[in-house]
């Protein structure tokens, strides 16, 4: 895992952990396999916020047109998707 990938994963996890705490989700184990959509932690607007937040922190602008949504609703999946087209 590259340094950038590691940093991005940590960023996404911290975003999700903060949100889970604030919203009163108990007992969630937020790791690389965590599916934030299935768990109900993020809805579609939440996903956009997360993507916006990662993009601005890591200076990315990703086109999702041909990306498989089944692949980007987990922490690792999202990081891979974001890095696959990034600079």
């Amino acid at each position: 895992m590259s340094e950038r990938e590691t940093a991005m994963e940590a960023f996404v996890i911290s975003f999700l952990v903060e949100r889970a705490g604030r919203l009163g989700f108990d007992g969630l184990e937020v790791d690389g396999d965590f599916d934030f959509f299935e768990s109900g932690l993020l809805d579609s607007f939440g996903l956009i916020e997360l993507i916006d937040s990662v993009e601005s922190s890591f200076d990315l602008e990703v086109d999702f047109t041909d990306m498989d949504p089944d692949a980007f609703t987990t922490v690792d999946g999202l990081v891979k998707s974001l890095l696959s087209t990034g600079p």
């Binding site: 999702f64 047109t65 089944d70």
Partner: peptide
Amino acid sequence: PTKRATIAPAKFIR
């Protein structure tokens, strides 16, 4: 579409 595809349906439509 799958439940996930409803949040990002671009690939589904194509």
